[in-house]
Design a protein around this nucleic acid. Structure first.
Lengths: 229, 229
DNA sequence: ATAATATAAAAGTATTACTATTATTTTTGC
DNA sequence: GCAAAAATAATAGTAATACTTTTATATTAT
């Protein structure tokens, strides 16, 4: 998989950036260090000026890649979902049994991220932390409808729709396949957050993971549905 | 209920404000118009300066009530959860059947908010919209652990724990009562958001509500659990 | 070698998120 | 009803943010 991914590029909607950060060394440094910095100080405190200082570059040069830090966040989360989607499709493509396929899918979307060395300038473990802690801010804005229309969130939506399809294949008459799919993704992220900051609001920890909870929830729901109509 | 609530005050942790906004006319105007304004322009664009202009008061006077807009958001969401908690306890207190009680609870926490005239300066419908669109930003911060330790989120946590207790009463051996409880609250808000902005990611609309989805999810899960162990 | 492009440096602007000081108004305690 | 205290308003000021613009320098492509 590693070798294959080295030739693969996660395709991000061109409207999100002014200049493709994958097209230059500076662009890659922007991505690499924005991940480190947002993880370290949080999205609110993160600025292009501070980023410029640590990558030894000028604020104005960063503005030639991204209009503002919000679009950079949209880029980073899109990249993450594209990367996860790739893993998902790769791992489940050959599977035929709907149950196995759904199980594998849940395992992939809810597992703790491990470093993937295929993309040397992207730290996937930290990017996953950013998705847990910051990604809601990319769509909880007044501009969400406009940006959605422009296609900023297509990768995420495609991911939810893939999950929806797997749910339908396993339980064709279930009434809420897309609501369950979106709940799986958001719910998993939220349980990861609670595990780290509000342990009394979750039963998840290092032994019973958010993935275990979600798998239990999904299969209890769909099995009950399949057996009782 | 209306008359009773007129004598009730939602108790908010005193560390969240510098001066209790319920203690003066100016304070109430701050709350009233911050709700209108955050709903209208969004939390990012909302400033104390703009609020001062519309309430005909000075920026510096607002700073005597709240240190910054983040604490005001924490106050507003706390008030909302306290208000919902009150309705929940009031409506379910006399119930004895665990199933009925859980059903009623789900109905209350997931229903579309209607205006409550008991608190004249608070528009609960708009406040509910703010909770859907902005409340995640109150805890997705680098300061969350510190603020949690200071008790900023006690009301929300108490609400999740009440839900957890109802789940336990109905399904005493279920493994994930608090994870399910937190998923119910966050999931409901998220489905409301999707319904308004990403209709392809949810099956909920005006006919099949987020409440219907969540009730279906919860009872399918817990019934399956109760019958299969 | 020249032109085109990318990056860096510097300066400037409007706004934000405050703090501090002083003046004025309102409330309260006697 | 008056003085003291408290609350609010007005004004000014600061440092940082979120940019934009201009110009200079370096890099790359033809």
């Amino acid at each position: 998989m590693e070798r294959l991914l080295k030739t693969i590029k996660i395709a991000i909607n061109e409207k999100i950036y002014l200049k493709d950060p994958e097209s230059s060394q500076l662009g890659k440094r922007i991505i690499e260090h924005s991940i480190l910095m947002i993880d370290e100080i949080g999205f609110e405190s993160f600025t292009f000026k501070k980023l410029g200082v640590v990558i030894g570059s000028n604020e104005s040069s960063i503005y030639r890649y991204f209009e503002n830090k919000h679009k950079l966040l949209v880029y980073l989360t899109s990249w993450y979902w594209g990367w996860l989607e790739y893993q998902l499709v790769f791992a489940t493509n050959s599977m035929t049994d709907p149950k196995e396929k759904l199980e594998k899918t849940l395992a992939i979307v809810s597992k703790s991220t491990v470093q993937d060395n295929a993309f040397t300038h992207i730290n996937e473990v930290l990017l996953n932390k950013i998705v847990v802690n910051e990604s809601s801010k990319s769509f909880l804005t007044k501009e969400v409808d406009l940006e959605n229309k422009e296609g900023y969130f297509v990768i995420y939506k495609r991911m939810v729709n893939r999950l929806e399809d797997m749910i339908k294949a396993f339980a064709p008459t279930y009434d809420y396949p897309s609501s369950l799919a979106s709940t799986i993704l958001e719910g998993t992220l939220h349980q990861h957050f609670l595990k780290d900051h509000f342990p009394t609001l979750t039963n998840c920890d290092d032994k019973r993971t958010p993935g275990d909870f979600i798998a239990d929830l999904v299969f209890k729901t769909l099995n009950q549905h399949n057996s009782n109509g």
